[in-house]
Structure formats: C-alpha cells, structure tokens
Computed example of a mutant assay.
Amino acid sequence: MTTVNLVMATTVGVLYGTGFTLLLSRSLMRVLIGVVVLGHGTNLLLQLAGGPPARPPILGVAPPEQFADPLPQALALTAIVITFALTTFLLALGYRSFVLVGHDEVQDDVEDRRIARQKAPSAPLEDGAPHEGDPLADVERADDEVEAEAWREAPR
C-alpha cells in the first residue's frame, strides 16, 4: 500500500483551489491561467496516484509486485494534451475578444438577464410599490439602465 505525502496533497489542493478561483473571474486571461493551473494540478494528482517510482512493467525483469502502474502515466500524458488544447483555444478566444472589443472582459448578456427577470416570481408589497430599502428595486433599476444603454449602442 502506498501513502501520499502530505505536502504533495496540500500542493494539489492549493493548485485546484487557485485554478477554480481563477476560472470564476471575468477576465479571459485569468480563465486561461486557471485552466493551466488546473492542468498542472491534475498532472500532479495523477503522478501521486501512480505511487512512488518503481521498475518498468516488463515481464521477467522483476517480480510483479515491484512493477510500476503505467495507467497514471498514460492518463497524465492525456491530461497534458487536453490542457494544451484548451490553452490554445482560450488563447485564440481571448485574442479574438481583444481584437473585437478592445479588452478581454466577459460582458453580461442583457437578453439572458431580461429572460431571467421575466421567469422570476415577483411579489410586490400590499400597496404594489417597493419600499425604500428594497435591494431588488435597485437591481431592477440598474438592469433597466444596462438594457437601455445596450439598446442605444447596438449597431443598426
């Protein structure tokens, strides 16, 4: 039975935490870095799952209990290829976004917000007007302003 080094397990946890945190940001460059960090965390996790270095799995050279497991190595190579493909795709996406918009910030979709507001149940107060401290009234007002601005800036 193999045991996992606590430092390596913590490193994998930190890499995954950092990667997922970067994936949740709005900047495509941070998303790209998050994918790369997650890929490195996955490679490290697969190497940890493979256990310590051992003899190559060639019959007749060593007893079977001393063989290395080739599956984690094959999975690590696959993870490297997938990470490279995602990195290339996100680089192209970020470059295209920068060329078209001038920045790599992901914008809110006004139509999605409008549909979500239509589907959301609204429960007005008894008099039908929102009270002064209602945070949803401010959000709806801000959504209406964003929609009006998007409508003015839309190409015709």
Score class of each variant (00 low, 15 high):
residue 73 Q to G: 05
residue 129 A to S: 10
residue 121 P to W: 12
residue 92 A to I: 13
residue 55 R to A: 14
residue 126 E to M: 12
residue 74 A to K: 03
residue 67 F to C: 03
residue 110 V to A: 13
residue 76 A to H: 02
residue 77 L to N: 05
residue 40 H to S: 13
residue 93 L to E: 04
residue 47 Q to L: 06
residue 121 P to L: 11
residue 116 A to W: 12
residue 74 A to D: 00
residue 154 A to R: 12
residue 95 Y to H: 04
residue 103 H to A: 06
residue 152 R to I: 11
residue 125 L to P: 01
residue 87 T to W: 14
residue 126 E to Q: 10
residue 79 A to R: 01
residue 110 V to F: 12
residue 88 T to R: 09
residue 50 G to T: 09
residue 82 I to N: 02
residue 146 V to A: 15
residue 47 Q to E: 03
residue 107 Q to E: 04
residue 101 V to L: 12
residue 136 L to W: 08
residue 121 P to T: 09
residue 115 I to F: 05
residue 142 A to E: 11
residue 146 V to M: 14
residue 142 A to D: 12
residue 55 R to Q: 11
residue 73 Q to Y: 09
residue 39 G to P: 00
residue 92 A to T: 09
residue 83 T to Y: 01
residue 100 L to V: 13
residue 68 A to Y: 03
residue 142 A to I: 07
residue 69 D to S: 15
residue 139 V to S: 12
residue 58 I to Y: 07
residue 116 A to S: 10
residue 59 L to D: 14
residue 130 P to G: 02
residue 88 T to W: 11
residue 102 G to N: 10
residue 112 D to E: 14
residue 153 E to A: 14
residue 111 E to P: 00
residue 59 L to Y: 06
residue 107 Q to V: 04
residue 147 E to W: 04
residue 90 L to D: 03
residue 58 I to M: 03
residue 147 E to C: 12
residue 120 A to C: 07
residue 44 L to F: 05
residue 133 G to T: 00
residue 51 G to S: 09
residue 79 A to E: 03
residue 102 G to E: 01
residue 51 G to D: 03
residue 94 G to K: 00
residue 148 A to L: 13
residue 72 P to N: 06
residue 45 L to V: 01
residue 122 S to I: 11
residue 115 I to N: 04
residue 61 V to F: 10
residue 109 D to Q: 08
residue 110 V to E: 05
residue 120 A to I: 02
residue 126 E to R: 12
residue 115 I to K: 09
residue 114 R to E: 11
residue 83 T to K: 04
residue 56 P to G: 00
residue 149 E to Y: 09
residue 119 K to V: 08
residue 105 E to Y: 13
residue 111 E to R: 09
residue 131 H to Q: 07
residue 90 L to T: 05
residue 145 E to M: 00
residue 108 D to H: 10
residue 92 A to F: 14
residue 90 L to G: 00
residue 105 E to A: 12
residue 140 E to W: 10
residue 102 G to P: 01
residue 119 K to P: 00
residue 133 G to Y: 06
residue 147 E to L: 10
residue 142 A to S: 09
residue 39 G to V: 02
residue 94 G to L: 00
residue 138 D to N: 09
residue 108 D to Y: 05
residue 112 D to I: 02
residue 124 P to L: 03
residue 121 P to V: 10
residue 117 R to M: 15
residue 134 D to P: 01
residue 87 T to M: 14
residue 79 A to Y: 00
residue 105 E to C: 07
residue 46 L to R: 01
residue 88 T to G: 03
residue 54 A to H: 04
residue 149 E to K: 13
residue 146 V to R: 12
residue 147 E to F: 11
